[in-house]
């Protein structure tokens, strides 16, 4: 253990540095190309060391393109509203599940749990949301399908309540005459802030990153969140490329240039990168607890 301790440490560190570089290199390329002059991008391609810098893409995004500012606003609103609603639903379901003396709680546990085992799949869900609830091209499309509550998170929160809120505390509040809602919001939740932060972050991330609901249910570009906007730009480029291959004439004038697309992508990850370093602990805890303790 002693003889080559130093050699092994060097090896281990080099390996981890290599992996860390692999993890961030694509982001560096992304940021660099968003600051590259458009002409240099065309002649040299994407590069870690651009031959000519330019902030044109960001100026364009912030001044000329209303879709981006709008998309940002929609992403923010959806993330905030969605996370708050999700947390409320999760807490309200998890808390009574954690109360051992509640008759019939196993029925509710199974009702929740079964949704993790079996799902109807895309086709019936899609037909229901569009034909029964008519959510196409409404903000509900970004908020409600699939994302509003997640059985894993409910179970994670129930487990936390069971492990960290002593029955005696709840009983004492009941004896004092507090109502059940009062006990939950006044006594239990202040003791559960770490798990609320953890689940809130995971849910917020899911809302910010979601583009599939936009793919299924939105075609009105005034409703596009930043991710949906990015997805649609790529789709338009794909169809242009296919037209070009088929020999048709192609008009790329309406589509954002390469550096603008890269700047837009940077904007799409920026909030995550800003928040993540401060919240890293909660993310890691959420992953470690969530998957092992199910």
């Amino acid at each position: 253990m002693v003889e080559n301790k130093k050699g092994f440490q060097i090896f281990a560190n080099i390996l981890m540095i290599f992996l860390a570089v692999c993890a961030v290199a694509p982001f560096v390329l992304l940021v660099m190309s968003s600051f590259t002059d458009e002409q240099a991008l065309i002649t040299d391609g994407y590069s870690f060391f651009p031959s000519k810098f330019s902030t044109y893409a960001y100026q364009y995004l912030l001044t000329k393109s209303s879709a981006v500012v709008r998309g940002y606003g929609i992403s923010l609103m959806v993330t905030i509203v969605g996370t708050v609603c999700n947390l409320l639903l999760t807490i309200l379901y998890a808390y009574p599940l954690s109360r051992k003396e509640l008759p019939g709680r196993n029925i509710f546990a199974f009702y929740l749990f079964f949704t993790m085992l079996f799902s109807g799949g895309l086709v019936p869900s899609y037909l229901m949301w569009t034909q029964t609830f008519h959510i196409r091209n409404t903000y509900f499309a970004l908020l409600v399908p699939g994302l509003l509550m997640n059985a894993f998170n409910v179970i994670m929160m129930r487990t936390y309540f069971t492990a960290n809120i002593p029955d005696a505390v709840v009983e004492a509040a009941r004896v004092d005459g507090a109502s059940e809602f009062r006990i939950l919001f006044g006594v239990v939740l202040p003791m559960a802030l770490p798990i609320i932060a953890t689940i809130g972050l995971l849910v917020g991330l899911a809302y910010w990153n979601d583009w599939m609901n936009g793919l299924y249910y939105l075609n009105d570009d005034r409703m596009f969140s930043i991710q949906v906007l990015l997805m649609n730009i790529q789709r338009d480029l794909d169809s242009l490329r296919q037209q070009a291959q088929a020999g048709g004439s192609v008009n790329t004038a309406d589509l954002p240039s390469t550096s603008v697309r890269m700047a837009l992508t940077v904007m799409g990850v920026l909030p995550i990168m800003v928040i993540y370093p401060f919240m890293q602990k909660y993310f890691v805890k959420g992953i470690a607890v969530g998957a092992v303790k199910g």
Partner: peptide, 22 residues
């Protein structure tokens, strides 16, 4: 190391597709 290696997990597949395209 732990913090940096987790970063790719946090981004959406749409962003990944732009990174791959680069």
């Amino acid at each position: 190391y732990q913090t940096v290696i987790l970063i790719p997990y946090l981004i959406s597949m749409v962003i990944v597709s732009y990174l791959a395209f680069a």
